[in-house]
Write a protein that binds this DNA or RNA. Structure first.
Lengths: 347, 347
DNA sequence: TTGAAAGCGCTAACAT
DNA sequence: ATGTTAGCGCTTTCAA
């Protein structure tokens, strides 16, 4: 037949509604009515139209349909740093559940924590007329998103709130979570408590650390900075930091891991080196293996975060002028053993 | 301003290219060229166009653009049973990586293991002219998918091959994996080996069981059926089955968990009941906590599965008539301790 | 119940 | 370098 350029679907030669109508011996509009499930088509003609469509392998051109109706695409975009981190699929699931009620689909994309990739994905999604954007952003300044908002695109920030921009957001009570973790460890007698945290610039990281610092200072522990380590965004980085701390003279007696990757790293290194006595451990994020491993965590609920984000996006789709809203979800300390290990008696 | 029906974006009143062109004092086509990044536009006019677009908050109508160019949407659909199962995000990530090379986005949807939901999602995605479909199917008969193939939609089945349909697929060597697990346990002296498997109708389940059965029979173990339990699609179901087996007279000395949920259930129940001696455990799927928990697994590579699926989809997009291809990915047994526990000496 | 005609907003082809 | 014209395939008037 015709020679198409490689990589391009043979779009132009697809059967159109006109072909279907011709084959069925009806007018264009009648075919449209039948296929669109509209009333006022005689049963006989409807059947002929369906048969013709079937025979031709007809598929409605969605672009033409949307254009004619003046509608946008029924899909919402989600940009995360890494879909392989179990936190995000849980969020995506909650979001998808919520979107289903509005008959919307979810398009996902990974930024790999790169602000440039994130922004190019955001523009890309906006250009396709995605109905709304949900972003777990890797950017430190979100003023650029203003452009998308101005074009009528609802943007909801999840996990990490927008900086220098007025926007909807859903976040966890990170300060409260950090404080709860520290109080828990303090009550088990610990004073040398290490924080193995994520990238410095992450607001989640900062808040968790701030919450912990506040609790420690209030308890009279003022030298906590000595055991703070950051940049533990993956398991290997976390392990390295734990190893370094354990090798030091005044090794911490307890670890607070600031995210699920850091927690895995802390636990792996502790199991690998098996120091005696074993330091206490509290993690952030509700990992599925917390119970089997007996790891105490400050549990959050990413699925709920996804649902709330979906709710906010849908709400703004209905009413563009509503005031922006920031939802703060609570965290809960769940004891599984590792966080209750007592500090060794002072020498 | 105008009253729009609730829930509908104000699409009709959005500025169009015509408005931008008018404001910039250029022709429609020049505005189109400038915004489309085409050459042959003077710097001065280009600037005026951009300024006008900015001022109006103009956003190109993707539907109109696609229609005019005779193109389809640049996105691929992925249907899985449950995005919260860590297996699927890993697959989605590999797939997204591969699609990025073709500048395609990924739209995800969950079927919740329901054939009806799966099919309605498949149709929905097809109606939107998604470029291709990747499906981890919950259906037992895939002849309906023929309809989508006939309409030129590439469909790639992942993890679970198509039944009664000729289609591209990427699967694991489940038989080999099942055999490897059984051989490993046999070599540690076990004869009473339990299989905690997924739903009966799942081809993955069947193959893993078949591989195990083959190895056991070859080793002269013929009563393996007594310890086979199925339906362990979630953690709770797996735990219940393990509990029942442990309570019986001739409790198994080893467990082979047929999927990552079953594995978590087996491990949770064993830790909870702490039988002595502790049965050996081998799991299927490469869970992130295998190493810390010391759990021996038959590791698969869902990311690679995603990449290969993307490759197949892109290949069929380029050449609709290529013969269908089924890629079988290998599995590897990775020892972490739990699978090497010896069977107790016979009484 | 059916159909003809007019456009949705954009881009491609062809001028100029 | 710029503009004019004619559609893309569908849905929406409106008339029959």
């Amino acid at each position: 037949m015709t020679n198409q350029p490689a990589g391009q679907a043979d779009v132009t030669r697809r059967p159109t509604l006109t072909h279907v109508a011709e084959l069925a011996g009806v007018s264009l509009k009648t075919a449209s009515r039948a296929l669109g499930g509209e009333p006022y088509v005689s049963a006989a003609k409807r059947e002929r139209v369906f048969a013709a469509a079937q025979q031709l392998g007809y598929q409605r051109n969605a672009a033409a349909s949307l254009l004619a109706r003046g509608q946008l695409f029924d899909s919402v975009g989600l940009i995360t740093s890494d879909l392989a981190n179990p936190f995000y699929p849980a969020l995506a699931k909650g979001l998808e559940d919520e979107l289903r009620t509005g008959d919307l689909l979810l398009t996902v994309a990974n930024s790999g924590e790169s602000p440039e990739i994130e922004w190019s994905l955001a523009r890309n999604l906006a250009d396709r007329q995605t109905k709304a954007l949900i972003v777990a952003s890797a950017m430190a300044d979100h003023t650029v998103y203003r452009e998308l908002q101005d074009r009528g695109m609802p943007v909801v920030f999840v996990d990490r709130p927008a900086q220098q921009l007025d926007a909807d957001a859903v976040v966890f009570d990170n300060i409260g979570g950090g404080r709860a973790a520290a109080l828990h460890l303090l009550s088990a007698g610990h004073r040398r408590i290490s924080f193995i945290g994520d990238y410095d610039w992450l607001p989640t990281h900062r808040d968790r650390l701030a919450g912990m610092a506040d609790a420690l200072e209030s308890a009279g522990v003022t030298d906590w900075r000595r055991w703070v380590r950051t940049g533990a965004h993956d398991v290997a980085a976390a392990r390295a930091r734990v190893a370094e701390l354990l090798d030091a003279q005044d090794a911490p007696t307890a670890f607070f891991a600031g995210n699920n990757r850091a927690l895995l790293g802390v636990v792996e290194e502790l199991i690998y080196r098996a120091p005696d006595p074993l330091p206490a451990v509290v993690g952030f994020d509700n990992v599925e293996w917390a119970r089997v491993l007996g790891v105490t965590v400050v549990a959050d609920d990413p699925e709920e975060m996804g649902r709330q984000a979906g709710r906010l996006a849908l709400a703004r789709l209905t009413d563009r002028d509503r005031p922006t809203e920031t939802i703060v979800l609570p965290t809960t300390l769940v004891s599984h053993g590792s966080g209750e290990r007592r500090a060794p008696a002072p020498a």
